[in-house]
Design a protein around this nucleic acid. Structure first.
Lengths: 208, 208, 208, 208
DNA sequence: GATGAATGAGAGTTCATTCAT
DNA sequence: TATGAATGAACTCTCATTCAT
């Protein structure tokens, strides 16, 4: 008896998935509901049955996508829970994974869409922010605090440290990827990650 | 007899100005040519007479705006040509001004538009990049190289140093300004600028 | 074991009832099948199971309603079967009741719907006419003939007399009720009924 | 230099004309704006340029049509200004013309549309009423009053007399024309007009 | 038999763009 | 040259109707 329910849920998922894909490809205005329906393999009115509006469709697609993204990023921080002996290596691992996630096509599209449509959908910012960079910063700051306490990093404001770590890591990617136009190779990603970690550690060496 | 020419040039300027204003306010798709014409105080076909097309209009408006922006940024770097005795103070001055320019309304709009429409107008990236962050990075790297040569900064790759300096400075502004939604007060700007410079200098102290 | 049959009949009745209500409220085009289903307390496909089509639904709802209306009107004529001594009083009674029925909400809606949709549903006219004004005219003409024969009315064409009686009675109600927009009070109804009867009698006094 | 102005006015007139024609043919909902545009020989957006909305289009088309209709009806009353010796003949002339106008295709359509869409466009009633039956009644009542004063008609309430005259005349046409479905021949029109006038005069003979 | 879900067709409305003045 | 008016194309959304359960 769960078949129809599953079917319905699947269809809703397919629609949201397709919607994000098309929004990512075309932007909000250029994305036609017809194209979204095609992408999801349903008829146009089905889209309207599930998500009342093009706007609603957008909001839900963004929300779903950003929750997925948050989950992955938080997972990437896990190695810092047990940093081991080689802090630099651990940071490099984490940094590389965060960078990969940051440069992922869907993640770039999410940021791009957020950027473009923030005037039209101010609420979306709140929805997405709830799963956004601020959550990562928080989690990362927690780890930083531990490292400071244990004397492996110079004592300082852990929030600022987390923010600057992320800034070093991602701040230059926009230019490097030509705003998401160019795919960045694994080598370049590793190089940026390592350089960022090195600079961060140089600035954060414990006093004396 | 130059009056009519001036008039013509002025009209073109007014159109480009108005176009950028409206694009900034609404985004490319939502910006109506009529609204742009109204903003510029001309009739719609006049817009088409001067700039053949909505797309052309966009490209030229973006180009103009980005050239203006580049000029201001390059000017902000000038103090580094003669750093004086107090390097930290000079860097702070430069950093603060760069940050101000980065957070300016029109600058934010320029980045936002670039982001949103990059799929539709890939050429715009080239046009704007020609006056974009890469030019700043270059100029800044030049200054860094001088400072390294003169022993006031640790010897390293000047391009990377410039990149990381900018990353530290601007990388966190997106989150802090809630994607340009919130205006950031002068105090907060200064605080970020100083923190960035401090971290940068700590990581760049000349070896021993 | 007749219960389910009753249930079925009841459901059909409920649907027709609800259909007329909604058609009366919104008109044919604006009446949604969903709204009709809701009004009848059933699901949309149930409507289609019972009455194949929106058009069929309309036809049956109109037919049912007009049969009900005819019954009431014929009943209103009954006092004329035995006019008694005071013809004027009897005519006034009948006139008032006919006027009441004419101004009833559902009767107005019936006429309005007939009017609007006559181009789309020409057959409906036949169906409804079979229970429509022409039947009343006939019955009324019969009574008029009796009254003429018995010398209580001037000898004349009884069909014409019936027609003019109804015309005097109802001809001005459209303007007075502002096309069914305004509800007409009992006093006004009585006044119109009396005036119509008086004029009719003045024109129908038996010769000399 | 009046050519373009004339052109614009003509186009607006053509649109309103075409709109009424199509509304009359199909009813409000079934009338497509495209069909109206075709009927008027313009493109769809031109319709929207001149009359902002389908609803606005309807209102203006109705208003225009009803003003035309009023003019014709008032003109039909003119013979009553100088009734001459043969009152019956004059009344018959007026009655016949009023009846012709009442049964005119466009007049029927006007009433039908008013009826159908009164719920959706309540204001239309006011607009049209301003040029509607009530104006005729008034004008006719004026003439009646004169005739009563001069002793050619029995003294009575002139408004009521006018109302009943019109009721006798038009009250039976709906049934006879099968709600505008059947065109009524000139002979039948004359016969109804005469019968109405005769009945009216019989009921209105001056006392004594 | 009754229903939730899905669909094909179509309507109103808007907008970038082009004539004609 | 600058403009008012006109248009062709497209898009969102709705609804009567039909499967599958």
């Amino acid at each position: 008896m769960t078949a129809p329910v599953r079917g319905r849920i699947d269809k809703r998922q397919a629609i949201l998935e397709g919607a994000f894909t098309v929004f990512a490809r075309r932007g909000y205005d250029q994305a036609g509901v017809q194209e979204i329906a095609d992408e999801a393999g349903v008829a146009k009115p089905t889209v309207y049955n599930h998500l009342h509006d093009k706007a609603t469709l957008f909001r839900h697609a963004m929300e779903t996508e950003s929750q997925v993204a948050l989950g992955k990023r938080l997972a990437a921080l896990e190695p810092l829970l047990e940093p081991g002996d080689d802090l630099r290596a651990t940071l490099r691992t984490v940094a590389l994974e965060l960078l990969r996630l940051h440069c992922d096509d869907r993640a770039c599209a999410l940021r791009r869409l957020l950027h473009s449509e923030i005037a039209r959908f101010p609420e979306t910012l709140d929805i997405v922010s709830a799963s956004g960079p601020h959550r990562i910063n928080e989690a990362l700051a927690d780890r930083m605090a531990r490292l400071m306490l244990s004397g492996r990093l110079r004592s300082a404001d852990p929030d600022l440290a987390a923010e600057q770590f992320m800034a070093l890591l991602t701040g230059s990617m926009e230019a490097r990827s030509r705003m998401g136009t160019r795919t960045i190779g694994e080598d370049e990603l590793r190089s940026v990650a390592h350089a960022s970690v090195d600079t961060f550690l140089r600035a954060s060496a414990p006093a004396g």
